[in-house]
Each structure stands twice: as structure tokens, then as C-alpha cells.
Simulated scan of single mutants.
Amino acid sequence: MKITSLAAALFALLFAACAPAQTPQTVAPAPVTVPAGDAPALWRVSDEDTTIWLFGTIHVLPQGFEWRNATIDAALDESDLLVLETVTSVGQSDAALLLMRLGVSADLPPIGARVDPELLPQLTSMIERGPFPESFLNGLETWAASLMLVGVTLNDLGLDPENGVEEQLELVFQLADKPVTGLETPAEQLGFFDGLPEEAQRHFLSSVIDTPEDIREEFDAMLNAWRTGDEAAIAMTFDDELSFSEPLREALLTRRNADWATWIGERLAEPGTVFVAVGAGHLAGQESVQDFLRAAGIEVARVQ
């Protein structure tokens, strides 16, 4: 899909605070009967007294989409701690304020001047379909304007930014009175974008721009790759645009994968069972989290 998984997750984090209040759920989503051979991929990293489950997620899902099975549920049940990229249920207002502080600048060129001319009609159409006027986007740095446009993509797909794998996992652990933590803070995640050179920011903006028809086709391919645990297809469909911009790939994928692999390696020194859930694009293709773990001499076994 032409938007990075981090962008989709950040949009959910930033704007869930602005969504209408909903009645809190009081029961966890019921386990489903997805066959083990037709389910998202799951890996295990372990030593004598520690097990770390490594699970690739998709940050937004169609309503009612079934993805859990007995293998995933067993790993969840035995885990003492859930570790996400960031905790989405806290800090939403602060994150939105931080985006405004980091992302607003003076004397910026109009948003339309920051894309190739052939993309301008699609950009105009996206702005017209979205809630943010062009005058507002003109005052945002390119990365911040791009994040705003991610919401148009999600709306085109009919997706609720608060309905993703992470939200479902958080609920399971909260109801079991088990802790949830994050590998990164929202401020750190926004900083990845804010630190990008302008050329990389404009590449990111171009990657967000698409027609509703292409968006649907790309998302369906991504969802099917994730649902079936097809690593090759995941590598092709998740964060595919990052392969065309080395600064973007380095900031949003490679460096983070290396950091997370270091965290996992250090966590093996503590006993217990941990369920680590990060975007599926981080667990497929070259320079994946598993690649960095294996480079450090840590065995990773795919169990589903």
C-alpha cells in the first residue's frame, strides 16, 4: 500500500482523541476459527527462561475482520506483557498538539507546489474529499500535511482508524489485567518524520496521493498478504514506496528494526513471556527485525 504502516498508526493515534465518544467495550473480542495455515505470521524467540512472540500487525482493519486462531490465542494467553510500537490508548491529545508544534512552519510553498505536476489533480481531489482545507495544509511541513491526507485514504477505504490489530490486542491484555507498553513514544514517532530531509518528505507526500480505486486495490492486496502470512507478498505490498527513497526507508524502517532487535535481544536476559506486535512490514523483506536478530546470533523460528 502506498502509505506506510507507521503513517496509518500515527493517524489513528493523533485523531482518535477527536472522534466521537464510544461506549467502552467490557468483553474481549471472541476468538475465531481461522485455520493455522491461513492466518497472520507468528515467530518465536526464546532461551531457557524467556519466550518472546513476534507478531506482524496491520494497523487498520475492516469492521468484523477475523484474524485470530488457536495458535495466536495460546501465545496471547501465556504472555505476561504486550509490547506495541507505541501505546495508542494514551497520549492522543498530547500527540496531536505535538504534531501542530512540530509541523507548522512559516513561509512554506503551497502544498500543490510540493508534488510533481502530474500528481496535482489527484492531490486536489484528495483535499476536496478530506476535512482539511488547502489553506490549512499550505501551512504544514510536508510530512505533517501527508499525515493529514492519510485520513482521506482511510475514509476512502471505509476504515475506522481506531479499529486495528493493536487496539484489539490492547483490549485483550487490559481485560486480563496484564500490562501494555510501547517500544517508542508518539513524540519519537513524529520525530522520525520531522527529521526527514525535504526531498524525502515530498516522496512521502507523493506516496500518499492516490485515486480511491487504486487505494482499494492496494489495500486488498496488503490485507490478503497479511491474512495469509505471505512474507514475500507482505514485503511487496507493505511500505513498498520506502524502497524508492533511501532516507525514508532508513528513518522509518531500517533504523527502527535494528533498534527493536536490540530491545528483543536485551529482553531475553529477563525471564517471562512477552508478546511483541509491530507492523507486518517490519517482519518481512530485507533488513527485517528477524534479519537483525539473526545477525546478532539470535535464533528466530516461525511457528505459523
Score class of each variant (00 low, 15 high):
residue 234 I to Y: 04
residue 175 L to H: 11
residue 196 L to G: 02
residue 210 D to S: 15
residue 296 A to V: 08
residue 180 V to C: 03
residue 185 T to K: 04
residue 203 H to F: 07
residue 273 T to H: 09
residue 239 D to T: 01
residue 244 F to T: 11
residue 181 T to D: 13
residue 211 T to K: 11
residue 215 I to Y: 01
residue 223 L to K: 00
residue 239 D to K: 04
residue 209 I to Y: 09
residue 266 E to N: 13
residue 200 A to M: 05
residue 289 V to M: 10
residue 297 G to T: 09
residue 301 A to R: 15
residue 252 L to E: 02
residue 278 V to A: 06
residue 276 V to A: 15
residue 232 A to V: 14
residue 233 A to R: 14
residue 245 S to D: 15
residue 298 I to Y: 04
residue 288 S to M: 05
residue 187 A to V: 07
residue 212 P to T: 12
residue 210 D to Q: 14
residue 176 A to K: 14
residue 246 E to H: 11
residue 212 P to Q: 11
residue 256 R to D: 08
residue 253 L to Q: 08
residue 276 V to L: 15
residue 264 I to L: 12
residue 292 F to P: 00
residue 201 Q to M: 12
residue 291 D to F: 09
residue 172 V to T: 12
residue 206 S to Q: 07
residue 174 Q to I: 08
residue 267 R to D: 13
residue 212 P to N: 10
residue 286 Q to N: 13
residue 214 D to H: 13
residue 270 E to W: 06
residue 190 L to K: 01
residue 273 T to M: 07
residue 186 P to K: 01
residue 191 G to V: 02
residue 202 R to H: 08
residue 246 E to L: 13
residue 221 A to P: 01
residue 297 G to V: 05
residue 288 S to H: 02
residue 166 E to V: 08
residue 295 A to H: 13
residue 220 D to Q: 00
residue 296 A to N: 14
residue 195 G to I: 02
residue 238 F to E: 03
residue 228 T to S: 13
residue 278 V to Q: 00
residue 280 A to I: 03
residue 184 E to T: 10
residue 223 L to M: 08
residue 272 G to H: 11
